[in-house]
């Protein structure tokens, strides 16, 4: 699999000289399978450039939404393939007990918030409630499960021939665990992340900041590292950077953890434009 980060910022896009190294676009990650399958994890503002990079020759693209907060869907209306007649686009997202995904996305993709209605998009669009459990897209095996974050929110694990990545961009695993990180069976997201080669995980806050935002559905970088250690991952990429954290603040967060914690895995600061290859 090849993984490319098109947006690593959380909550709100923040473009400017202060975020030029880590990037200011919100959540969007591209995953390419060996068979050419193209997955797009979340449709934050980073998806616009991803759409422009696809070029021609692809047959199908699948967008997997973890949840419908604005920083994860705001770029959807600017994703080029949606406007290509005949392009096969699938959108998967968390189920809700009251409305299907199409209706909920329609609240954003309709006036007065957006001028183009979903039904007017010229592509061949299919919208799915992501099943809790496993489903296949090409040769990629996807597992989705609800995780600790306000509102229906799923995380994804993607497996391809023995290699796996886990995507938990908005996640507060310390919530609900009495002795975090000691109880894997009581830890949200554990089954999705366990033993994966690459974990992309929420690390929005410093430990000091987290105390003011407990229950908001995000993690401190220390909690993210503790979760990754519990799950036995090989690499962790920090994600969902707080919009108030400039490049220097993000350097400091990651360096602080590297200095103070004996890490059993490789810790990588999530940077827009970074790419990773895992597996053969």
């Amino acid at each position: 699999m090849k993984i490319t980060m098109w947006g690593t910022r959380g909550s709100l896009a923040d473009a400017g000289p202060q975020t030029v190294r880590y990037g200011g676009n919100t959540a969007c990650v591209e995953v390419r399978g060996r068979d050419g399958s193209i997955l797009v994890l979340d449709a934050g503002t980073g998806i616009r450039r991803l759409g422009g990079s696809l070029g021609t020759g692809w047959k199908r693209v699948d967008i997997l939404l973890t949840h419908l907060h604005m920083d994860h869907i705001q770029g959807l209306g600017f994703f080029g393939p949606l406007y290509q007649a005949g392009a096969e686009v699938h959108i998967w997202g968390p189920p809700s007990p009251t409305e299907d995904l199409r209706s909920r996305l329609g609240r954003y993709m309709s006036p007065p918030l957006f001028p183009v209605l979903i039904r007017d998009l010229p592509c061949e669009l299919t919208i799915h409630d992501a099943p809790r459990g496993s489903f296949r897209i090409g040769e990629l095996e996807i597992a989705a499960d609800l995780v600790c974050h306000p509102g229906p929110t799923v995380g994804f694990r993607i497996d391809e021939g023995g290699t796996s990545i886990c995507y938990l961009p908005d996640h507060e695993p310390a919530l609900g665990v009495h002795d975090f990180p000691q109880e894997p069976d009581w830890t949200s997201g554990y089954d999705l992340a366990v033993g994966c080669q690459l974990l992309i995980h929420d690390a929005q806050y410093s430990e000091e900041e987290y105390s003011a935002y407990q229950g908001w559905g995000h993690s401190s970088i220390e909690q993210a590292v503790a979760f990754a250690t519990l799950a036995g991952v090989q690499k962790m990429v920090t994600f969902h950077h707080d919009p108030s954290h400039d490049d220097a603040a993000l350097d400091q967060l990651v360096e602080g953890v590297r200095r103070n914690v004996q890490l059993p895995f490789s810790l990588i600061a999530g940077t827009e434009g970074a790419a990773f290859e895992i597996g053969e």
Binding site: D145, L146, V147, C148, L175, G176, V177, H178, P184, D185, W186, T187, S188, Y190, D191
Partner: peptide, 17 residues
């Protein structure tokens, strides 16, 4: 041991308070 569902995880948190 399999992970509990997130609904049970959050219920336990709520009950503990």
């Amino acid at each position: 041991m399999a992970q509990k569902s997130v609904e049970l995880i959050l219920l336990r948190q709520w009950a503990s308070y």
